[in-house]
Computed example of a mutant assay.
Amino acid sequence: MSILNVVGRAALASIFVQGGLSAVQQPQQRAKLVAQAGLPAPELLTQINGGVMVLSGSLMTLGIMPRTSALALLAALVPTTVVGHPFWQFEEGAQRQGQMLHFAKNLALMGGLLLVVADTGERR
């Protein structure tokens, strides 16, 4: 395992650990979006999603089952992206642009996670 893989995984995981802690400790704002999406128990779902992010991000950082952890983060990030950044629901303007930016950021994170999933540790 190269030092670049270790540092890259830790850097990628940091946003999930930080965001997940926030969702667990203060779910109210995010839960409003979950409720608007029509999902049941919005605060509980928000905290579960945050917990998955904290646990999986921590495991990925430590190099414990990094590919499985990245898959779990992908599974948590997809609904987070769709529910949390529905840019298509806004008219043209700053709010739509902001949501589009966050949606695209999450797509980029998904790409990074897919690279971790694809990393079998083989030398090339």
Rank of each mutant, 00 (worst) to 15 (best):
G112V: 00
Q25E: 10
S58A: 15
Q97D: 15
I15E: 00
A41M: 12
N49E: 07
L114R: 01
I48R: 06
V52T: 06
G19H: 05
A75R: 02
F16A: 07
L39D: 03
A75N: 04
Q95G: 03
L77P: 08
A75H: 02
L44K: 12
R9V: 00
Q47C: 04
T120L: 09
A10L: 03
L12V: 01
N49D: 06
P27G: 11
G63T: 10
P27R: 10
T120V: 11
A72P: 08
G51R: 04
L74S: 13
Q25V: 11
E122D: 08
M1C: 09
S2M: 07
A72L: 15
E122I: 11
T81K: 00
G50D: 02
M53K: 13
M1N: 09
G38M: 08
L109N: 01
L59C: 14
G121H: 09
S22D: 14
W88E: 13
G57R: 08
G19C: 08
L4F: 13
L39K: 07
A13Q: 01
N106P: 15
V78T: 07
G20T: 03
E92A: 15
E43V: 10
L12I: 02
V116F: 01
M100I: 03
Q18A: 15
Q95H: 12
P79S: 05
G57N: 09
K105A: 07
H85Y: 09
